[in-house]
Computed example of a mutant assay.
Amino acid sequence: MSKLFSDRNRPVHMGRYPTELLKRSRVMPDLDGLAPWPDLSFERPAGSDSLVPAMAEFQAMMDAVRDGAQNSAPS
């Protein structure tokens, strides 16, 4: 794939693509019309060779990490 933008003289902290050239808007889009995310189901028929049932335990562990206690000290 050929490069569309040269990043030779671009500071590394600004990223690979010139996103500062994108048009900005002060109006937030209306997100009420979006469909809600479907709930994940880790249920599979007994005896099926699927990895999905094992993911339930992993998902529960990740939820505990994401929703866990936060440090009250300012950084």
Rank of each mutant, 00 (worst) to 15 (best):
S75C: 10
L4Y: 07
D39Y: 07
L34E: 08
K3W: 01
R16E: 14
R26I: 11
K23P: 12
P38F: 02
D32A: 11
G15F: 03
T19Q: 11
D39F: 05
H13N: 15
L34H: 03
A60D: 07
M55K: 03
S50A: 03
D67Q: 08
D30W: 02
M28D: 15
M61E: 12
V65Q: 07
L22S: 04
S6N: 10
R10A: 08
V27Q: 12
A35Q: 13
A69Q: 13
R44H: 01
D39C: 02
S6W: 03
P45G: 09
V52T: 12
D63N: 12
G47V: 05
D32F: 03
L51H: 09
D7W: 01
S25F: 02
M14E: 15
N9I: 00
S75L: 15
D30N: 15
D49L: 09
L22F: 10
N9Q: 05
L21A: 15
S72R: 14
D30K: 06
A60R: 08
A35L: 09
R44C: 06
N71S: 15
K3H: 01
D30C: 12
N71M: 13
S25Q: 07
E43A: 13
D39V: 06
G15Y: 11
D63P: 02
V12W: 10
S2K: 11
S75D: 14
L4E: 09
S6V: 05
A73T: 11
Y17Q: 11
A54T: 07
R8Q: 05
E57W: 01
V52E: 00
M28T: 09
A64D: 12
V12E: 15
P74K: 12
Y17D: 08
P36A: 04
S48I: 08
G33E: 04
D7E: 14
M62I: 14
A46G: 05
T19P: 00
V27C: 09
N9P: 00
D39M: 07
E20L: 09
Q59V: 04
Y17K: 12
H13D: 10
A54H: 14
P36M: 03
S75F: 12
M62T: 13
D30Y: 09
A46Q: 08
R10M: 02
M1H: 11
H13Y: 05
S48V: 12
S48T: 15
P18W: 04
E57P: 00
P18E: 07
P29R: 09
N71I: 14
A60E: 10
P45T: 08
G68M: 01
P29E: 06
Y17F: 13
N9R: 04
M1D: 03
L31Y: 04
S2L: 04
S72Q: 13
P38R: 00
A46T: 06
D39I: 06
F58N: 02
G47K: 04
P36L: 00
L22E: 13
G15P: 08
M62W: 12
R26D: 14
E57H: 07
A73G: 03
A69D: 14
K23R: 14
R66P: 00
M55D: 01
A69K: 13
V52P: 00
S41C: 08
A69H: 10
K23M: 07
D39T: 11
R8K: 15
